[in-house]
Nucleic acid binder design. Sequence first.
DNA 1: TCTCGTGTTTCTTG
DNA 2: TCAAGAAACACGAG
Length: 286
Amino acid sequence: MPELAEVEYFRRQWSPGLGEKIERVLVHEGARVYRGTDVPGLVRGLTGSVLRESFCHGKQMIFASPAGWLGVHLGMTGELRVEAPDFTPARHDHLVLVQKERALVFADFRLFGRLRFDPGAEAPAWWRELPPALLSAEFTPAVIDAWLARRARSPLKAVLLDQEAFPGVGNWMADEILWRLCLHPATPAGSLTPALRQALRKETRFVARTAMETVGVKWGDLPETWLYLHRWDAGSLCPRPACRTPLVRETVAGRTTCWCPACQPGEATGSKPVRTGHRREKPVKE
DNA sequence: TCTCGTGTTTCTTG
DNA sequence: TCAAGAAACACGAG
């Protein structure tokens, strides 16, 4: 589920628990989300400690405590939420930090998410070495140019999904950016003109910023004029008023991809058409 | 019963 | 050695 803005939304869900003592830590120790993690160390470290601050970077989150750093990745179906302190974890609630007035819960039914814990005062290397964030000053035209050159033969869709280049961009954001640029998803990354490379940076940042301001803060609705709201519905049309061409859904770069064949012309991919009709569910609000 | 998936990692191929 | 694509992971929804 979660891309850049959704990750920010979920990060905020645990904010009421920042600065509050963690009295107990409940885990499903064998769960796949703990792959590579010292789970007893995590439990020892966080029990009796506090989460002081939290940060997002792309799809990664980190919670800082005096005992160490709790890293959270939501995978496809992960979520963070708050429950009552006497909450009993269900099958998919793999980490519960019990505090006096609430329980902070990490749940993930498909187990593609990841939880890790790094003791120590300094943030772990995997966090410090993340690539420049989309909305940071370090996300420069030169950074983008270098990646487009390095992956020149890849479809642009694949490069946008590369977390080493565009941290936080997921399937819907990639489709939205390509639609705004009027570029076919299979366009070779190395074929963009300087003007298009500049536009790619501008639209990427626009989509990221707008999503953060709406979805990231309160899970609000993105504008009707975006591709996003139309990309899953069978028979849906390009939202550009002057276009209204039926949208196409096919697999590009291994992912279901939606585009407008009129606004984003390109060669036939020969890829498999995708069944339509799925709709995204929002998390249940209080 | 069968197919699909808003993600990442590993394997295979060229 | 590197890049690109496919497969695998797990399981609920339609």
